[in-house]
Write a protein that binds this DNA or RNA. Structure first.
Lengths: 221, 221
DNA sequence: TAAAAAGTGTAACAACTATTACACCTTATC
DNA sequence: GATAAGGTGTAATAGTTGTTACACTTTTTA
């Protein structure tokens, strides 16, 4: 377990034996979860810190019609909902469900607070984690503020396109990308078709080739 | 200055003289700003902590067409962009501009980090502040995930409607509410007109009266 | 008080997206 | 390799919102 935690952002910079010593001072438990299990519902009180040891979780915002706007995937050894452990309203913002079987380390809030005061490196790491979460949400808002699907798609592609190559690997189906955007699948397909007709991009099975970078950038004006 | 800081969330629970002692140990400066001045642009590096002493600022997300999706007002003695001081990418998420003249306390990041280690109460306060910011952004995303204007309006009204009275005081013009929603003003007015025609609400000058609570709730299914 | 500014109600039209449906293709799975 | 399951392209239609314009009212300012 301590090797896994060693690669966790929260314990970044600490040796296994140091983590061992810290955790020993701090009441905790290891809980297992199974695929498709719902671990917490939106609005539920967050009273414990959770760190994924193995497996994969998903934070999902279910709208009232039943379709879902996906927010974030959570892999080991990430911390779950770190930005919702403190603050005026410590409530889960999303439904937390398991994508696969796995285990996680559970530390109740009071014990976790003590953990933070025991080691300055852990504290600094935690500050970076929750700040990073806020920044993730902020970028999400930036993304959602793009009105049209064409704009969202251009922003999405240009954000991945960091290297010099014009080939973007896409590990998601159109259906998944549409969910990520919060739009209907055929609507996304229509826009992709338009951009292909204009020879701006070429959407292939596992990758997207950018044919006209200037045109793609000019979508965002 | 120390009386103002005493009512700041960051120094919550500390006496004026304790704040005085803390600040004295920590290099700082007081900077003044003028109305309409832009203090920071989106994407700029955050390298200093800023606490508003007097006046009013605004975090504003400018889209490329020039219209703006308003995010947040910042009043004294709030901290500016606390969640963007740490984390992997310490960059301003919005344009920061002054709504009125005012002054603020400026502490460079390294000095601020030292300040956090000097007093545990300040540290706890800071954790609550940045967690609260993340939670604010999360609620914003929840809000933006409502697709139609009617849903946004229902969610907005029902969220304010905490007390037993069916009268909601509104301190914003329709134009401001439309900006808050990120929609066009006439579009919002049209929806308000529809709900008034159905006798669900009555939108008056400075207040909204909810006439049919069940109907309003059923908009969110 | 008069003039200017801001806020509100409304309409016609254009633009964009969701919904639904179906054909076709690719990839798993037995 | 046959079948099922999932992914993709596309079209018709309906619904929602943005844009623009204008009349009218209320509030602010000179």
């Amino acid at each position: 377990m301590f090797e896994i935690l060693g690669s966790s952002p929260l314990f970044n910079g600490l040796e296994s034996h140091q983590i061992n010593t810290l955790i020993a001072k701090c009441p905790h438990q290891v809980k297992s979860f199974t695929k498709n299990e719902v671990l917490a519902y939106s609005g539920q009180v967050v009273d414990k810190a959770m760190i994924i040891l193995t497996g994969k979780l998903q934070g999902e915002m279910i709208d009232l019609a039943g379709s879902s706007l996906k927010i974030e995937d959570l892999n080991a050894p990430q911390m779950v909902a770190p930005a919702f452990l403190y603050g005026p309203q410590a409530l889960f913002p999303v439904n937390l469900s398991a994508i696969s079987d796995g285990t996680m380390l559970v530390i109740y809030k009071n014990d976790f607070t003590k953990l933070l005061t025991l080691d300055q490196r852990v504290l600094a790491n935690f500050l970076n984690i929750i700040s990073g979460k806020a920044q993730f949400l902020s970028r999400k808002i930036t993304f959602l503020s793009f009105k049209t699907i064409k704009e969202k798609l251009a922003y999405f592609l240009l954000n991945i396109l960091k290297s010099n190559t014009m080939i973007i690997p896409i590990n998601h189906s159109q259906k998944e990308v549409a969910e990520l955007f919060g739009v209907a699948r055929p609507s996304l397909a229509r826009i992709i078709g338009e951009l292909e007709l204009l020879e701006i991009i070429s959407w292939e099975r596992n990758q997207v080739v950018v044919l006209d970078l200037n045109a793609l950038q000019s979508i965002l004006k």
